[in-house]
Design a protein around this nucleic acid. Structure first.
Lengths: 327, 327
RNA sequence: AGACACCUAGUAUC
DNA sequence: GATACTAGGTGTCT
């Protein structure tokens, strides 16, 4: 069976923090990057990593189709490489070919394999190209922010384990970290870890300061939305101010006093009265929304919206809990 | 004396119905537009019209300071134009510079004059920029609605007639219409009539159906905002469902039963649970806001926000009353 | 001279 | 979240 994969690179500022990614499907992709590199090195590395990963997985005998938006990469590998090898890696102007290390590595990895390269126009809506692009860009962004780039599940040696439809992320790919993940972190992480587990019902933990009128007003609204959207929200109340009666009723059993001793303030920037905003496909939502399709973009964006909510004075912390899965 | 003016452009849909405007003070401004153009052509036209108007008024010898939020315009005129003239109006990628007609006209109009361009961040509360923006946007809206754009007083050939400070809109310019203006109408009206009368305190009339949970939730929040922002809201309650006790307290004396006999339903589109959204200068508000400065954009946008609110099921009508003026 | 990719900045919107 | 209007650049090759 022919394997079809997309490969893409990204470099912020070019040159700058750079990323690469290849993508077969949601269960099989990889990404990485460097603190400083170029767009073309990212594109080349994506192809190289794809070739090596498929070989490691014992798929070197399978025909491979590589979707790539860089004519530089495709022409280098399929058209110009023979001439370069003949002429001692000199360009037409006599100067040395750049990125020779990666080009030679790709050449070696290609030996004896059936690989076809197809050009796809970038940013034109090709799904696999977009998926690779997002991951490469996300890796570059992560590295720019000083965080490690998410490596992705890679390619299991034997093909995807999941026989069921859309099995997706393996348990091994999901790190066993803290049960609660800061949404502030989630906002700047690339897409993949933000996606709720398939079948899981997202649960959100909010810390609410009743002394803040803005927070109280937002909480009222969020409680309604949560009920309408079947979103689990667990409230923690800080400070000494009493919760308004109607709000206590709305929040119900999920509201409980803070375990913290000190009601330390949320250090939101002054005047930050900006609550959540969520725009999906031109439709504007005033807050978190859980999409009917659990893998949809809306589900991912839930965490972004909550991260914005975290900027509301009076909300000291907002966390998510993906472990509240249900079959 | 140095003349300081703001210039701005607007294009609905971009490209789409477009407007331009320049603004010195309430007595000296002009606006116009086209049925179909781009944002950048609007920005350029505003500058060109300003240069021509000042020249026609015999003010070509006065130093002119142009406040502009488009780096495209400022860089084009002050930085890139020399290179373009040298290279035959070719961009760095070799393709022809766009909007060359307007750029050359501005270049001619600039000859021999003392003009300084200052960049101001758009939608950041700069008063003159906001004034120009409102007029340009209003011109585009008027043209979109098939009405002529208000041209403005222009620049009298001997200076402003108004000797008093901030003379502003004459009584003749204010139409004597119905006391209550539908906000749904106001949304598609051009900017000027939407601005509350200077010194007036806006008053809003809402018709609330307690049977709608979304409307009730929105009403709770709006009541809070109204109290914080000193906004007059008059509530009318429809239907037979009881108002929740806490909400009745919040709304207080301003809530009264509907005069209507039938509690006819608000025919919002199905699934339209999208409440108000307000973005000012990049800051996101969850609903109507009254700006401290009564001429600010926030005050104008109040009506837009309320128009959106009108799409909330359970709110049957939202009207404004500008006549509630107070000295 | 051409092609593709990668960006950076601002504005205008939906 | 998306697109369109505009410019400036680099990375790479033929």
């Amino acid at each position: 069976m022919t394997i079809t994969a997309a490969a893409d690179g990204s470099a912020l500022g070019n040159p700058g923090p750079a990323g690469w990614a290849w993508y077969i499907d949601e269960a099989r992709w990889a990404a990485g990057g460097w603190e400083h590199s170029t767009n073309n090195r990212g594109e080349l590395q994506a192809v190289l990593e794809l070739l090596e990963a498929t070989a490691r997985a014992g798929l070197a005998d399978e025909p491979l189709r590589v979707l790539c938006d860089s004519q530089y990469v495709i022409n280098s590998v399929t058209k110009w490489m023979p001439g370069w090898k003949r002429r001692g890696w000199k360009k037409s102007d006599g100067r040395p070919v750049l990125n020779r290390d990666q080009l030679e590595a790709i050449d070696r990895a290609l030996a004896g394999r059936d690989v076809r390269f197809d050009w796809v126009k970038g940013h034109a809506g090709h799904e696999m190209n977009e998926a690779a692009d997002q991951r490469a860009h996300g890796a570059a962004l992560a590295i720019q922010a000083g965080r490690p780039a998410p490596a992705g599940p890679g390619l299991a040696p034997g093909g995807p384990k999941t026989s069921g439809a859309g099995g997706a992320e393996t348990a091994a790919a999901r790190p066993t970290g803290p049960r609660f993940v800061s949404v502030a972190d989630a906002q700047t992480t690339d897409g993949a870890p933000r996606t709720p587990t398939r079948g899981a019902r997202p649960s959100v933990r909010l810390v609410l300061d009743p002394a803040s009128p803005v927070a109280v007003a937002t909480a009222r609204w969020l409680a309604d939305v949560a009920r309408l959207r079947d979103l689990d929200v667990h409230w923690t109340v800080t400070g000494t101010a009493p919760l308004p009666d109607d709000l206590r009723t709305l929040l119900g059993a999920s509201a409980r006093p803070a375990a913290d001793t000190a009601p330390d303030r949320h250090d939101a920037p002054a005047g930050a009265a900006t609550p959540a905003l969520l725009v999906i496909g031109g439709r504007v939502f005033r807050g978190p929304v859980v999409d009917p399709a659990p893998t949809g973009r809306a589900a991912v964006r839930l965490w972004d919206a909550l991260a914005l909510l975290a900027g509301v004075p009076g909300f000291r912390a907002i966390e998510r809990d993906d472990a509240t899965a249900r079959p």
